[in-house]
């Protein structure tokens, strides 16, 4: 690990100023569960860290608002996951947090930091001798002809097929969340769906945030859809594993008929992946097993298999279908 300077910011403005003035090697630090890990494997090498854990109010969250739910970027995953209102009225949000990482990690990890976690691609994390366009732009992509069992089948490019590993962002994308950010030039609001980018020719650029922009909070429009929702996650073990395939699903039903549907995919794509075709196909339909399966197929349409990951296309479609049936039972 390279030596780095550490400072604790007292206010939002001071934190942003410190990161902005510190230059390219300066980063925000929240729970550290991603950042320190990446520093240890050499994938990140910041010179300065600005700790934002003491910022007043950053860890607060309010799930009782009539118009929206508000989550401070510093709120801990474990606290939010256990919120009784979230558990009852927005299971998709609560599940997405519960099913992520481990209890110890969730106790440390912040919601803002969670959004910005980086891929688990072993070639990216491993460093030398692997080629990786994300770690060393232009060096090549070792995963393309390598062990790509966990790599993306949606949204990949010639340059990179790394999966976006997070769960929480997938649930947020399904519920049309937005992210409030602030930087040296002021504040702005980014739709959650526009926060993460596909790799294209520049896989090292992962989000639409500027380096010195801080996530302040995440807002989710209050919606009836929350109740009949689920985050269904299929992984290699029952806990402490990233998704092989996951689906965030929310429904508004009238009897047997779907009036409104939200479907987003996790673990399958290079970014949190909203499946609008699947949603459109469901509206106005009776939610039978066949309709759910058709939605699954629609969600995975256009998926590109590599060498070892083609099973995750079928798995993804089945995961979506199962998620829809779970959500329907909650309607």
């Amino acid at each position: 690990m390279r030596p780095f300077a550490y400072a604790r910011a007292e206010t939002e403005a001071a934190a942003i100023r410190a990161v902005s003035a510190g230059g390219p090697g300066t980063r925000f630090l929240a729970g550290g569960t991603t950042l320190y890990d990446l520093m240890k494997v050499g994938a990140e090498a910041p010179e300065r860290l600005v700790d934002i854990n003491a910022l007043p109010g950053l860890a607060s969250f309010d799930t009782g608002g009539r118009r929206e739910l508000v989550f401070g970027a510093g709120a801990r995953m474990s606290d939010v996951a256990a919120d009784p209102r979230l558990v009852a009225e927005y299971p998709v949000l609560s599940d997405a947090l519960w099913k992520a990482a481990s209890q110890q990690l969730r106790n440390m990890a912040s919601l803002g930091g969670n959004l910005l976690q980086r891929t688990r691609c072993a070639y990216f994390r491993g460093g030398e001798p692997f080629t990786c366009n994300k770690r060393a732009p232009g060096s090549g992509c070792a995963a393309r002809d390598g062990i790509d069992r966990g790599h993306a089948v949606l949204g990949g490019s010639e340059a990179c097929i790394a999966t976006y590993p997070g769960d929480w962002a997938v649930a947020l994308v399904a519920l049309d969340a937005v992210v409030d950010v602030a930087g040296p030039n002021g504040a702005r609001t980014i739709p959650m769906e526009a926060l993460h980018r596909e790799p294209g020719a520049t896989p090292e650029v992962e989000t639409s945030l500027a380096r010195d922009e801080m996530i302040l909070r995440i807002r989710v429009p209050a919606t009836q859809l929350g109740r009949a929702s689920t985050y269904h996650k299929i992984r290699d073990r029952e806990s402490y594993a990233f998704a092989l395939a996951s689906a965030a699903v929310a429904l508004r039903m009238e009897g047997e008929v779907v009036r409104e549907a939200r479907v987003a995919l996790g673990g399958l794509a290079t970014r949190p992946w909203r499946a609008r075709d699947a949603e459109r196909g469901l509206v106005g339909q009776r939610l039978t097993a066949e309709a759910a399966r058709a939605a699954g197929d629609a969600a995975l349409r256009g998926a590109q298999p590599g060498h070892h990951n083609s099973f995750r296309i079928e798995l993804g479609a089945r995961t979506v279908a199962d998620a829809l049936m779970i959500a329907r039972q909650r309607a």
């Binding site: 688990r120 072993a122 070639y123 491993g126 062990i147 290699d236 073990r237 029952e238 806990s239 402490y240």
Partner: peptide, 15 residues
């Protein structure tokens, strides 16, 4: 390749 405890999938209690 998967030389760490996150990626070398040992069973956990929940398994």
């Amino acid at each position: 390749l998967n030389a760490d405890l996150a990626e070398y999938v040992l069973p956990v209690h929940a398994d």
